[in-house]
Design a protein around this nucleic acid. Structure first.
Lengths: 227, 227
DNA sequence: CTCGGCTTGTCGTCCGGGTGACCTGCCAAC
DNA sequence: GTTGGCAGGTCACCCGGACGACAAGCCGAG
């Protein structure tokens, strides 16, 4: 599985390991395959594994008592999740659901701990990852307070573009694989409002809407609209 | 400074250290005194120090372009901040301002790194702290999306009660030291709305309003209102 | 004591955006 | 092909909460 190794290597957790350490950890990886829409774990479950996405996309969601949902994030290849319970052993606070068919590498916490204890670079790498994540989350929070829905949509699209965008002939293709409903949950707004915002952007020629994707045509204007 | 040592010891960063390590790190601590309203550092500054609060309270704020502000959190004795730049060396993303007169212990990153590298429990402790912080922040985010302003105010007061509350004859005293304006920025709402929510709670007999403090009289009802 | 500046308590007004209600378009299964 | 279900597109309506504007209480400084 050369391909798999390559994707794993890019995950922050593995980045700092030497060949030997990587091989050892690699041995305790178990592969999980998910079909689109399938749930990996749910809020409240006991969690003692961490996952790295090998292919596909996974969303982390939280549900309110009344059934409404909120997407914390959408993750793609080489990205990691489920690591919080490693350091703070409590039930999962979000559910993980495959947005597309996906393949994941699962790692038991018990297999992991020795590496963290022994290899200081690994914990440093993890600290860095968590610090970055925290920064990001704070940004999102500020946006929720300061920015209106169209602005948040623009910002979210740019963020998705950073991670999943592919430069094409006719613009920056962002194949996010999300329905507008999911996009709405991601920015904390209703589907209708998100739809209106997207239509508005399209009308202005800033982007083109495609099935579960957008093509960004004027990144600069989008960026200005976002803040 | 026995008092100082005691407060420091409770900070997650120092908790896991043995006597020897504590003494060594203690030596490189520099004390900072702040008057109410004084700024310790500002958004965009270069940051290479981390702080532990010895006494008083400090708020972490972010400003929007138009001048509006948003409080990320209010921290009290034994709590730590400014650690993100340790692992992710970028300019500060928030400003730190004293809410009351305060004394802080400042630690340079360079003094700190050796400890992290050598003492694995320290990094574990830090990972735990960051993981907890991340969980918290995600909770706040969900609240922003799902909960109305009175609910967020109730939730925030309960949170403050956990950290600063003192059980008294006539209820749970929460001396938060915040103006209603600041409280409003903390829950992402306008001062007027927060004021109305507080008045409403007081009217119902759930709490009593005092200067920069509240006395919680019916914690159970507040808790139900929060979610 | 007195003045000025915060902080708090309350208005009316207005608007972003949530809600409910539909319709259309598309694809997949039969 | 037909049918059913899901995603996208658009309405009209209503409400929570922001905004602007003041009055009143409180406190620290002169």
């Amino acid at each position: 599985m050369d391909e798999t190794n390559e994707v794993l290597r890019k995950a922050p957790l593995f980045e700092a390991l030497d060949e030997e350490g990587f091989a050892a950890l690699r041995a305790s990886v178990s592969e999980v395959r998910l079909g689109r829409g399938q749930t990996l774990f749910s809020e409240g479950d006991e969690g003692d594994r961490l996952y790295v996405i090998l292919s596909g996309k996974v969303k982390l969601t939280r549900a309110a008592v009344d059934g409404r949902e909120n997407l914390l994030s959408v993750l793609g290849p080489s990205e990691m999740f489920g690591e919080l319970s490693l350091f703070d052993p409590r039930p999962r606070t979000a559910s993980a659901v495959a947005v597309t068919d996906a393949v994941l590498a699962g790692l038991g916490h018990d297999d992991l701990r020795p590496f963290i204890a022994q290899q200081p670079q690994v914990s440093l790498q993890l600290l860095k990852a968590l610090a970055g994540r925290l920064r990001r989350t704070n940004d999102v929070m500020s946006d929720l307070v300061f920015t209106d829905v169209p602005g948040r949509v623009a910002g979210q699209l740019l963020d998705l573009a950073d991670r999943f965008g592919k430069e094409g002939e006719d613009g920056l293709h962002v194949h996010h694989d999300l329905t507008q409903e999911e996009l709405a949950q991601l920015v904390g707004a209703s589907r209708e409002t998100v739809n209106k915002a997207l239509a508005e952007f399209a009308l202005r020629g800033w982007l083109r809407i495609e099935a579960k994707a957008v093509v960004l045509l004027d990144v600069e204007r989008m960026r200005r609209r976002a803040r």
